[in-house]
Simulated scan of single mutants.
Amino acid sequence: MSISALVRPRPVHRAADLLAAYLPGSFYFSSTGGTLLADGVHSRVRATGGAQAQAVAEALRAAAAAGVPEPVVAGAVGFHPAAETGLVVPSVVRRADAPAGVRAPDAEHGTSWTVTPRPEPARYAESVRRALELIGRGDLSKVVLARGLELTADTPVWVPALLARLVRADPAAYAFAVDVTAPGDPAPRTLVGASPELLVSRRGATVVANPLAGSAPRSGDEAVDRERIARLRDSAKDLGEHAHTAAQVAEVLGKFCVDLEVPEGPEVIGTPTMWHLSTRITGRLADPADPACSALGLAEALHPTPAVCGVPEAGALAAIADLEPEERGYFAGMVGWTGLDGDGEWAVTIRSAEVCDRTVRLFAGAGIVEGSDPDAEVAETGAKFRTLLRALGAEGVA
């Protein structure tokens, strides 16, 4: 029997029970592909950007030799190639099917919040104008600029309830909660979110990526939303922005695949708060046994995509460092898991927040290309905050 057959994920629990069992310090990840809850730390993976796939393969083989059943590596990787990582081999992993019919407590709308924009919207709009100057000079084709909000509540934020509300609001999202506590933190810090964007998944020799770029807010009014979808499908600016991302993802996966299917154009998908242009790319790996072809290896090769960084990458990274006043941390990084057989699933850490006691730090980004309007990008990032603000019961305070 092959190793792949031995370690194929087998759901043995109910998704709702795993969500209810999550506590800060655990690792939770769910999608339409299933639910994973991991506890304890058998070992930590120490590696810098670009070398993690090999280190992960070695850590998984060591864990299997030590008797860890069906070992996985799970965690999050920050946005910047040299940023922090939080990858571990958990001691215990439980699996279930995809979440459905999730119950969750309603958001506590009586919470008192203090909100600090980082930066102020007017300063963010000015950064967009400066980015447009770089694009106009030909230095860049696209750059993604993010802005943040820091919310402080009058009582500690209970992450399990926040996670459950995110899953209930959108069971099809890539929902996650992972401990990212750093030295100096006054309390445990958790990265929590519900991302609409799959960076890459792998099952056997089959890989799937689903880049998103080009967005419009969802209104909740059916007629208005039909109009917004139609505009998004016909928007030269959004279609151009999306094309940058889809082409780069296809180019990277093409280096590892013998077959690659790329749709001719994007479709529109929706979340409870946004509409996105989406391209689902599928491929068949040339060498599934190569650690570089593991789910994490492919994720490393793809990250950061133009959907969260820009084109060209080096110039976009420099512009982001110059124009964004706050370090992104884990925002626009990646979160997920990889098993001993190389299978796994990694999502882009958007629609996410870092929660530490009473403080919630969240970001939203917008792709800046020729034709972008600074005020419209302020509005787009504001709409993207709504996923977390709604789950926190803070939608009206920012």
Rank of each mutant, 00 (worst) to 15 (best):
R165Q: 09
F176A: 09
A194T: 05
D225P: 07
A182E: 15
S215M: 01
L162C: 13
A182I: 02
A213P: 05
A213K: 01
F176G: 12
R226E: 14
A177H: 07
R168S: 15
V200E: 03
P171C: 13
G204A: 11
Y174T: 01
A194I: 03
S219Q: 04
A209P: 05
V157W: 06
A161W: 00
R228T: 12
I229N: 08
V224A: 15
W158F: 14
P160W: 02
V167E: 12
L198H: 01
A175L: 05
A172G: 10
D154Y: 01
V159D: 14
T190M: 13
A175W: 06
A173Y: 02
S201Q: 03
A164G: 05
S195H: 10
T181E: 13
W158N: 14
A209E: 05
P171T: 12
P156H: 12
G193E: 07
E197P: 06
A223D: 14
V159E: 10
V224W: 03
R218C: 09
P183H: 01
G193W: 01
A169P: 00
S215A: 11
A182Q: 13
E227Q: 11
V224Y: 04
D185C: 08
V207H: 06
V200L: 04
L199Y: 01
F176D: 08
A175Q: 07
T155G: 14
F176E: 07
A205V: 07
L212I: 11
G220V: 09
D225E: 08
S201V: 11
D179N: 07
A187L: 03
D154S: 02
P183F: 02
A169E: 09
T181A: 14
L163A: 15
V178A: 15
V159T: 13
D179Y: 00
L199N: 08
L198P: 10
A164D: 09
D225C: 10
L191W: 02
D225A: 08
D170F: 13
D221K: 05
A216K: 01
V224K: 14
A230N: 11
T181R: 01
P156K: 08
A187F: 00
V180W: 03
I229M: 07
L191R: 03
D170Y: 11
R226T: 12
V224E: 15
D185E: 07
L166N: 09
V200T: 01
S195P: 05
L199W: 00
G204V: 11
E197L: 04
D221Q: 03
V224P: 13
L166T: 07
W158E: 15
V167A: 10
R202V: 03
A169N: 07
R202D: 11
R165L: 10
P156Y: 09
D221W: 00
A164V: 03
E222M: 04
V200F: 00
A161D: 15
S219W: 04
V178N: 07
R231K: 11
P211Q: 05
S219D: 12
R189S: 15
G214A: 13
Y174I: 00
S215N: 04
P196Q: 08
R218V: 12
